[in-house]
Computed example of a mutant assay.
Amino acid sequence: MFDAGGLYGLISSTRAYLTHHPALVRSLIFARHTYYRCLKGYNALADPFELIEIDPNNITMANREIDKYLASGAIRGGNWDRQTQPYERSLKYRSVEQRFCHEKEWEETDIHDELCRRIETEGEADGCYSISDLERRYERIDQLYKSIKEHGYDPSQNYDGADTRIETSLDQICVSIGRDGELIFCGGGNHRFSIAKILDLDAIPVRVVVRHRKWQRKREKIANGAHEIDATVHPDFQDIISQSYP
């Protein structure tokens, strides 16, 4: 029989696997793009699976309310791009900084006790179901840091042991783009992203999940030949420059 935590962990894992299954995500993206093209008249729709190169230091804010899987390819209005928090205040970033900049043991970092508590009470935290799982995860993150420091960041590598609940090629560092082109972290690869910032990497590839409706209008203008917007100044315009739109 499962205890309460073990049962919760099983339910959480099953739900995450089903709702983030690649087939479901791809179906949602196809439906969205069909709607945007046919009913909204958008032509400059970006490929939600394509990665763009960005300077990690240009991402300072985060919005963790965006589902990095189920929201893929969405174009949204509203103020979600203003409802953000400083990324470097996050628990994971602080803990990575404590580990690799201040040479603390993982057990001394801010996040350790919180993850242990969740494993004990909920049966799962960050894809870990026991303290032993958590210790192995930290060993992988140490290896991740060493690999990125010595060889740079490669998005094709499964560095830190992808969450076993979610087996999908969509599991990349994810951003969304606000109305003025601001890059907003929205989940995926927290440790990879934090390490990239700490190591001051010049560029990393990221996957764009959501674009603000006002930003998408700028993409449409460029695709339609508008000259008042400099398409070379933002990495999200590069696909438009390289393609021809009707």
Rank of each mutant, 00 (worst) to 15 (best):
L51A: 00
I29C: 13
F185M: 10
E122A: 11
H191V: 12
L201A: 03
K68H: 01
F49M: 12
S242H: 04
K218W: 04
F49E: 07
R94W: 13
Y145V: 05
I195L: 04
E65Q: 12
G9P: 03
D163K: 02
R64M: 15
I111V: 09
V25Y: 06
G78P: 00
P48R: 11
P205K: 08
M1E: 10
P235Q: 11
R94C: 15
I184R: 05
S130V: 05
L10H: 12
A62V: 12
T121P: 11
L10I: 10
E220K: 12
A125G: 13
L183S: 07
Y36E: 06
I204Q: 00
S27P: 10
L51M: 03
G178F: 06
G187S: 05
L115Q: 08
G41R: 15
R165V: 05
C38F: 12
E220I: 06
T84A: 13
R118F: 08
A62Q: 15
P205E: 02
K197V: 02
F185V: 10
A226Q: 01
L134A: 08
G5E: 07
D163R: 02
E120R: 14
V210H: 14
R76L: 12
Y129S: 12
H227M: 12
E105M: 13
H21C: 01
F49P: 00
Y69M: 04
T14M: 09
D110A: 14
G77M: 07
I173D: 03
Q172E: 05
I241K: 00
H102D: 05
L199A: 05
Y159P: 04
K40F: 03
T168K: 06
T121K: 15
W215S: 11
G41S: 14
M61I: 13
R192S: 02
L18G: 00
S130Q: 09
A162Y: 03
G41H: 13
D180H: 05
H21N: 06
E114G: 08
Y245F: 15
N190F: 08
K221E: 01
L134S: 09
S244M: 14
E122K: 09
L70C: 07
L115V: 10
E108S: 14
K218N: 06
M61N: 14
P86D: 06
R136D: 02
Y153K: 01
R213I: 07
I59S: 02
I177P: 04
G41W: 12
Y245A: 12
A231E: 11
L134F: 07
Y129Q: 12
N63S: 07
G161F: 03
P48C: 13
K104P: 06
V96I: 15
G9Q: 01
S90C: 13
G123H: 08
I59R: 02
E120Q: 14
D171S: 03
G225W: 02
E124P: 02
K104W: 05
L144W: 02
Y36P: 06
G6A: 13
Y69L: 06
R82D: 04
T19V: 09
G161L: 03
